[in-house]
């Protein structure tokens, strides 16, 4: 290229340095029109691309702002401690909170038990054969099944076949199956991250396989498993479609007191209130206030997950 011969050698070096640091590409005196165009395009693209990343942030901001302002004046202690009512001024979400807590009381032990033992089987016991890869494909496909389909499964199996009605148990089991893949994958990763020398150490001391898993592998992978568990719960707590498909009744005035009682949960309450805003506009404020409660719970759970990840996760 002709123009390069005009450059002194030290100038070339400067240019190369600049290129490395991404500042400018070539000296203005020697850049021709085409070069300028390319650099301009590069700059424009950088701005546009960063804008579309920031777009997500903007939407998030608008969403929080809108829901926050709509809930002002509605979200107070009374709202949290009083029960449902058809009158918007009197309505509260105490029953929905208790219902969600009950649901999680079913989901947490079931998913933790099933998820972790599935992960242990896949990582520690299964030989790397066809069966294991079959289970793995199966789990990754289950993760992609729409949540309504799980609702249909729950409706047929738990509600009609086992006759559990629209109880907490039926809802909890349906949600457990839905979030199972999340916790299985997270636990698998956590178990895989436990280095071989820890296992070898246990074996060398004469420990059996199960003893090794129980006393070495599980404690070492606990932070990862807990993080996955929290992610699974935060998915389950906001899930609406499967519960609606199960046929949770609209207005439940009784506070659930056992695993077999009918219930309502936070997301279902948001759904019904949103649907009824046509009739009673204030329901939109109630829905917004409930959303704030739900989002705060989710935020808290995610912060706990991040805290666990930072505080307890060890790299070997």
């Amino acid at each position: 290229m002709a123009y390069q011969s005009k450059l002194k050698s030290d100038e070339i070096n400067n240019e190369l340095n600049d290129v490395e640091h991404g500042k400018t590409f070539l000296n203005k005196e020697i850049t021709n029109e085409r070069m300028e165009k390319r650099i301009l395009l590069d700059k424009v693209a950088r701005k546009v691309f960063s804008l579309s990343t920031v777009f997500a942030l903007i939407v998030l901001g608008i969403l929080f702002y809108r829901i926050g302002t709509q809930s002002i004046g509605w979200l107070d202690l009374k709202f949290l401690t009083s029960n449902l009512s058809i009158f918007p001024e009197k309505a509260g979400i105490y029953g929905a909170i208790i219902g969600s807590v009950w649901l999680m009381a079913v989901v947490i032990p079931v998913t933790l038990l099933l998820g972790v033992s599935t992960a242990i089987y896949l990582e520690e016991y299964a030989n790397q054969g066809k069966f294991q890869s079959f289970i793995k494909t199966n789990i990754s496909n289950l993760a992609g099944v729409p949540s309504v389909i799980f609702g249909l499964l729950g409706l047929t199996v738990f509600r009609r076949l086992f006759d559990l009605g629209s109880s907490i148990l039926a809802g909890g089991l349906t949600l457990s199956l839905l979030v199972l893949p999340i916790i299985v994958v997270a636990s698998q990763e956590a178990i895989r991250a436990v280095p071989g020398f820890l296992r070898d150490g246990a074996y060398a001391m004469g420990a059996t396989k199960w003893t090794t898993i129980r006393t070495v592998v599980l404690p070492a992978s606990l932070p990862g498993i807990l993080t996955g568990c929290i992610l699974a719960i935060s998915r389950a707590i906001g899930e609406t479609a499967p519960l609606v498909v199960l046929g949770i009744p609209t207005l439940i005035l009784r506070i659930p007191d056992s695993i077999m009682s009918d219930f309502t949960a936070l997301p279902i309450q948001i759904y019904y209130w949103t649907l009824d805003t046509v009739l009673t506009p204030q329901y939109a404020n109630l829905a917004a206030a409930t959303i704030v409660v739900l989002l705060v719970v989710l935020l808290l759970m995610n912060s706990v997950a991040i805290f666990i990840r930072i505080k307890f996760q060890r790299r070997y």
Binding site: A56, L60, S234, I237, T240, T274, I291, L294, L295
Partner: peptide
């Protein structure tokens, strides 16, 4: 800083988006 914000966006329950779509 940007990736966690994206993750927050992904973690919001769909019912919240539904409310957002309908009311905003």
């Amino acid at each position: 800083t940007l990736k966690p914000i994206m993750e927050v966006l992904a973690g919001i329950p769909t019912i919240v988006y539904g409310f957002f779509a309908y009311s905003f």
